[in-house]
Structures are given as structure tokens and as C-alpha cells.
Amino acid sequence: MTGQVQPAAAEAAGGDRRIGPVVMEMKNITLRFGGVTAIRDISFDIREGEIRAIIGPNGAGKSSMLNVISGFYRPQEGEVWFRGQRRPRLKPYQVARQGIARTFQNIALFEGMSVLDNIMTGRLTLMRSTILDQALWWGRAEREEVAHREKVEKIIDFLEIQHVRKTPVGRLPYGLKKRVELARALAAEPRILLLDEPMAGMNVEEKEDMCRFVLDVNDEFGTTIVLIEHDMGVVMDLSDRVVVMDYGRKIADGPPAEVRRDQAVIDAYLGVPHDG
């Protein structure tokens, strides 16, 4: 879980210590559902170690974009390049194994399991013991369980959820569930972490906590973060670069301060008068 940023590359990226070379690139992505075009010819890149926000009005295609990145949707046109290679058609679990983890807009935790077990599922991609090892609970299975438990406990400490460790997830309040979901995604030690509206439905205090966690994750683990969020204050404060979408098109791309002044963005959010 040490930082994956190479110092030399970071220098090249213009001063910011964290940010490295391009790790993922979306090239001319088009996604259709029958007659509806959810994403229309969108290209952008994601740099190592940055916080990249995707914003836009409802129905702009932000979540679809995230689903394309996580391999849940397959775009009809366009390519996804990951770490310098074109990504072939993969199943979602294969994408997860490449080091892309995500959280969901509507919490998708495993309600019947404890917090600890939920977070442990995040490490399934890293477990190597065979069914026979596990059946006999011999040597490798138990060693592995303990080693992964140690890592998971670190994440539990980091996100301050020690007190609910063994509580079934179904009993937790909403804000804590969001945090557990982040913990599960972090447990996979992802290279890229996709957050789909991590602050949705939270009060101010919970939002502040969540912002702190997102920044800390980015800072301490050097994890690249792609974030969808509706709260503009949060987006402007957290993100390094912002992609703005509207009706499936990309209408702006750049640092928050720049995007905020962009006329197309202002029009999309406030609306423009139509002639005639």
C-alpha cells in the first residue's frame, strides 16, 4: 500500500508531487442502450495519483461512464487504455483483479454479513489458498486469513469504524454504511478507486468526514480516485481535474477553477434561453 508515484514522473507532471503519468485513458467512448445514447464520443485521461471528478446534471451519463470503467457496461465504440495497454473485453471480476475498485451510488454491501466480513470480501482478489487448504483450515488458509485480517484492521482503524467491526451491516446507519463500502473498496488495494456519489444523502458533518477520508486515501496510499459528486463545493475542493458531462457529451475538462468559469458549464447547470 505504499505510494505508487514515481518522483521523476511527478516532477514532469508540473510541480504537484502526487500526480504521475497517465494511468487510464478513455478514447472516443460511445455507449448506447437500444436507441438511447448514454455516452457520445467521450475521451479523457486519468493520471496516476490524481482525484478526477466527473460532474454533470442528472442523466448526463456519469454513472454509465463509471460502469464502463469498471467493466460492467461494454461501450459499442471506443477503447479503454489501462497502464499503456488497450484493455480487451473483460468481465467485471477480471477488471476488479486488475486493481479497479468501486463504491456504488445506492449502497451495495452484503447485508447478511458483519462489517469485518464485508471488508474481508474486498481482499478476495488477493487470496490464493485452494479449496482444499480452506476445507482443512491448514497452514496457508489460516496464515492467509490472519495476514489479510491485519491489513483489514488497518483500514478499519483508518476509517474509524472499530466500534462496529462485528456488527451485521444491515444494522448500521446510512453514513456508516457508506464508510464500510469505502473500506471494502480500499481493502482491495486498488490502483484506481471509483466513487459513485460518496457524499449523497449525508449531513454536513458526515460529508466533512467523508471528504477527509477521500483526501487521506489519496494522500497516504497514493490511490488514484475517480469521483462522481453532485455537491459542487466538494468537487471544487477535492478534485485536481474535472470532466463535465451533459446529455452524454463532454462539455468541459480541466482544473476546477477553469471549469467553473466555462460558459458551456454554466449554461448546462443554469439553463440557457432558447430563441424562438
Binding site: 469498471s70 460492467f72 468481465k91 467485471p92 471480476y93 476488479a96 483483479r97 475498485a101 468501486r102 456504488f104 451495495a108 454491501l109 452484503f110 447485508e111 447478511g112 454479513m113 466480513d117 474481508m120 470480501t121 474486498g122 478476495l124 482478489t125 487470496m127 489458498s129 479449496i131 480452506q134 488458509a141 492467509e144 471494502r184 473498496a185 482491495a188
Partner: peptide, 20 residues
């Protein structure tokens, strides 16, 4: 690990697939 995979599929199969 196998038991957790099973329970993950039981509780929410789509999420289980996305976490690997």
C-alpha cells in the same frame, strides 16, 4: 475465502462480481 464469496453472491450478486 470461499464462504465469503458464497455469501457475497447470496446477498448481492452484481456487487460480488464487481469486487472480484
Amino acid at each position: 475465502a470461499l464462504g465469503r464469496q458464497w455469501m457475497a453472491i447470496r446477498d448481492m450478486d452484481i456487487a460480488a462480481e464487481i469486487i472480484g
